[in-house]
Amino acid sequence: MPYGKAVLEAISSLTPVSYELVDMKCGFETYQQTGSALPEETVNEIKKCKASLFGAAATPSPPPFGYLPPVVEFRNKLDLWANLRPMRSVPLDVVGGRNNVDMIVVRENTECLYAGKERYTQSSTSGKMAVAERVVSEKASKRIARLAFEIAIARSKKRGRPGHVTIVHKANVLRLSEGLFLDCCLDVAKEFPDIYTDHTLLDSFMYKAMAHPVDYDVVVTTNTWGNIISNGMSPMVGGLGMVYGINYGANHIMAEPIHGTPAHLEGKGICNPLAMMRAAAGLADRVSPGLNLLGLFYKAVSEVVQNDKKYLTRDIGGTATTEECAAEVMRHFRAILSQK
């Protein structure tokens, strides 16, 4: 979190915009102290804010009964119905890495298995059973599809080439829930005749996208698949330490790194800070449009990658500590902001 705050503080000091930063508590440690992973005090304070930056939070496995990760509760309580996960590469020499990847996963953020509708039941033949309800609605499906097509239009104008939306589903097996999602997306597609639309099964998409990621632009899918796709494809852009997400709703925006808290790296000072820093830059870019803040931050990262890879952390081919990597990227970012 301190590295994300450093990005916002630099923007506040070197550009016309200014942010007031307020620290609030949540997560498993807070749950152990208070009995709630997301205290009402935190929710109420965040509702007063236009945007929030969420740090990586640990969730025990298996979690205590009834425990919900705070980021999931945030999405529900603030109606953050869309999760936008940009997959954009920088020229890294890492295993699985690809150049020229530039797609965005548009993930429905409130339904599917993340609705948390689970229960135990008993069967005379199978004994104790756990049942999870998979919730997919017409309203949420059309809402996320429409956003995906609007993003495709914006990207098309910016990049000067036709937009492309790919609908990812498993309607061959989950015929009702995934079938409804697919039908809703195809209905919305009729409103956007200038955008090329196709659809594919989840497993087929993963194979094709891993082989030819440059073939994809905007990917829209349900909640669970969106998480799997963005996490599973992260090695192409440097791994989980490079990817962030924007949780989007009518009244609030929340940015986050998509990774968790790797216990085996705790205290070693070698974690990649760039997902957290990208999240902060992405948040600022949406709160303060027109300044190209995310683009300027990407430029800073690219300069570090091209000039001296020793300042990168080990997961992306360098030898730097977390602190050294963040400091060098911030040095470049401040210099770029100062030239504006």
Rank of each mutant, 00 (worst) to 15 (best):
E178M: 14
G179S: 03
L180C: 04
L182T: 09
L182W: 01
L182R: 12
C184P: 06
D187W: 07
K190F: 00
K190A: 14
F192C: 09
D194Q: 15
Y196D: 05
T197K: 13
L202K: 13
D203Q: 03
F205R: 09
K208A: 00
K208G: 00
A209I: 02
A211N: 00
Y216Q: 01
D217H: 14
V218C: 08
V218E: 08
V219A: 13
T221H: 03
N223K: 10
N223P: 03
G226T: 14
I228R: 12
I229C: 09
I229M: 10
N231Y: 09
M233E: 10
M233N: 10
M233P: 11
M236C: 12
M236Y: 07
V237R: 04
G238V: 05
G241M: 06
I246D: 12
N247C: 13
Y248E: 12
G249Q: 10
G249I: 09
G249H: 11
A250P: 02
H252M: 15
M254G: 12
E256G: 06
P257I: 12
I258E: 08
T261H: 13
L265H: 12
E266T: 15
K268P: 04
K268A: 09
N272W: 05
P273S: 04
L274I: 14
L274Y: 03
L274H: 02
M276S: 13
A280K: 06
D285C: 02
R286K: 14
S288N: 09
S288F: 01
S288I: 05
S288P: 07
L291F: 04
L291N: 02
G295I: 06
G295S: 06
L296C: 13
K299V: 00
V301I: 10
V301Y: 05
E303L: 14
V304Q: 02
Q306H: 05
D308I: 09
D308Y: 06
Y311Q: 08
Y311H: 04
L312K: 02
R314A: 14
D315L: 04
I316H: 08
G318E: 05
G318V: 02
T319Y: 12
T321Y: 07
T321V: 02
T322E: 07
